[in-house]
């Protein structure tokens, strides 16, 4: 194993971490298993490709996550709030429907052809890492991806509102009783979650090929990660995302055949051992 492989693992892991932590947040705060998360990510990547054609990557870097955060507002006020009394599974099925609608909208807005986006100007070169050339863009991806997640963790750990988020995701009723304004916090979290999906999409655009299947594939892995980490545990999701990202990349070098199955086997083994998942999640879901 060399440093290049470690960096590749981190690059894959940082996208997964962004997506999985977003999913864990929205589940923890709003009790929603959001099947539209992958579609938002795909939408973001296609939108990035379109914006790059007309303007440049940095415009997309700002505009796309914000657009996705606005999609979060639509989700909150159009679905989650009016139908707050419906069961978790009902809302999950509705988001599954919304995923299809959003995918379809993405295709009619941006077409179905696969796209390739090249890395933006200052980041399009390579850098020597212990003698091996390495694309600068991937270092940028790792920095921004893991940096955002680190900021998220710092927010959760060291601020008042972050404390409230942790409380609500563990015991929503108790947190509300203690005076946490769960409504206001809910809006922030839904927007943050979809915004993170948007950020993952914009970061992925110059790194992966943009195609119509990209959302589904990563959604399922992210869902696996959230369950693996313990539903309702944001920290658990982050750690599992890094484990799975690492497993996949390192495995693809050493044992490619087994790697694609590894996350699922891992999930089944973990659930056999700890039905509540790795992290300290919610007890009453």
């Amino acid at each position: 194993m060399n440093s290049i492989q470690v960096l590749n693992a981190l690059a894959a892991g940082s996208l997964l971490t962004l997506l999985a932590s977003g999913l864990a947040l929205i589940y923890g705060l709003r009790n929603v298993m959001n099947f539209a998360h992958g579609a938002i990510y795909m939408f973001a990547a296609f939108m990035t490709a379109r914006l790059v054609e007309h303007t440049n990557y940095w415009v997309a870097f700002v505009v796309v996550p914000l657009t996705c955060a606005v999609l979060g507002l639509v989700l909150e006020f159009g679905l989650l709030r009016p139908f707050a009394d419906r069961s978790v599974i009902t809302i999950a099925l509705v988001t599954f429907g919304l995923a299809l609608v959003l995918s379809s909208a993405t295709h009619s807005l941006f077409g179905t052809q696969p796209r390739v986006v090249s890395a933006p100007a200052p980041l399009d070169g390579t850098l020597d890492i212990l003698g091996d050339p390495y694309p600068v863009y991937r270092l940028f991806l790792i920095t921004v991806g893991l940096g955002s997640v680190a900021l998220l963790v710092a927010w959760l750990k060291f601020t008042r509102s972050g404390l409230h988020v942790r409380a609500v995701s563990a015991q929503p009723d108790t947190a509300r009783m203690a005076g946490v304004n769960t409504k206001r916090l809910g809006v922030i979290i839904v927007c943050l979650s979809t915004g993170f999906a948007g950020l993952a999409g914009v970061l992925a655009a110059p790194y992966l090929s943009i195609d119509t299947g990209m959302g589904d594939a990563i959604l399922i892995i992210s869902l696996v990660i959230v369950v693996l980490g313990g539903i309702g545990s944001i920290g658990g999701a982050i750690v599992s995302a890094l484990i799975v990202g690492g497993l996949q990349t390192l495995g693809s070098v050493t044992a490619p055949a087994v790697t694609t199955i590894a996350p699922y086997v891992l999930l089944i083994i973990v659930l056999l051992w700890r039905p509540q998942g790795l992290g300290r999640g919610r007890v009453d879901h």
Binding site: L163, R166, A170
Partner: peptide, 23 residues
């Protein structure tokens, strides 16, 4: 102070207290 106390398991003593100041 609810029945069964409902202390949050994922928070420290101090964080549980700080949670009470949420309003």
């Amino acid at each position: 102070s609810p029945q069964g106390k409902l202390i949050l398991p994922n928070l420290t003593v101090k964080e549980n207290l700080l949670l009470g100041g949420a309003s």
